[in-house]
Simulated assay, not measured.
Amino acid sequence: MGFREGEVMGVQDTNNRRRCRGCACDQLAELQTGTLVDVFLPGSTTPLDGLMFVNFDDDTCCAFFTQTTAAGPRTIVIDCEDIVALRFLP
């Protein structure tokens, strides 16, 4: 009898497991609020550029960013599992 991934002695281990998977999710889980990034999404060669990281919710995989536009700041919510790459800006 084997245990499934994420189980310890047949009991679901929720203490040390993140729900969201992938490199971008791991980076966002540790990223400091206010960090500027460019976000690359699948199928696009042009990133969402100059986004300010606001928050990451590991329960929903939602990453929250603010983008400054001529009309004022806009909130962008992206599923971290859909992010192909992050570029960290100075």
Rank of each mutant, 00 (worst) to 15 (best):
M1K: 08
F3M: 09
F3L: 07
F3H: 13
E5F: 12
G6M: 02
G6E: 03
G6C: 05
E7S: 11
V8T: 14
M9W: 11
G10I: 07
V11D: 09
V11R: 14
Q12A: 14
Q12F: 10
Q12T: 14
D13K: 06
D13Q: 14
R18P: 03
R19K: 14
C20A: 08
G22R: 04
G22Q: 02
G22T: 05
G22A: 08
A24K: 00
A24S: 15
A24W: 00
C25S: 15
D26Y: 13
L28P: 03
L28W: 06
L28H: 01
A29Y: 15
A29P: 00
E30K: 15
L31T: 12
Q32C: 06
Q32W: 06
G34I: 03
G34C: 04
T35Q: 09
L36M: 13
V37K: 00
D38V: 02
V39W: 00
V39Q: 02
L41R: 07
L41F: 04
P42H: 08
P42R: 13
G43D: 05
G43V: 08
S44M: 11
S44Y: 11
S44P: 02
T45P: 06
T45D: 14
T45Y: 11
P47D: 01
D49Q: 14
G50E: 05
L51W: 00
L51M: 04
L51D: 01
M52N: 08
M52L: 10
V54R: 13
V54I: 15
N55G: 08
F56H: 06
F56M: 01
F56W: 07
F56Y: 15
F56A: 02
F56C: 03
D57L: 09
D58A: 06
D59M: 11
T60R: 10
T60F: 07
C61I: 02
C62R: 14
A63F: 01
F64N: 06
F64W: 10
F64H: 12
F65R: 00
F65N: 01
T66M: 08
T66P: 00
Q67D: 07
Q67H: 12
Q67A: 12
Q67G: 05
Q67M: 09
A70L: 11
A70C: 03
A71M: 08
A71E: 14
A71P: 00
A71T: 09
G72T: 04
G72P: 05
R74I: 10
T75N: 09
T75L: 09
V77W: 02
V77I: 15
V77D: 06
C80T: 03
D82P: 01
I83P: 02
L86N: 01
L86A: 00
R87L: 11
R87C: 06
R87S: 12
F88W: 07
F88G: 03
P90D: 10
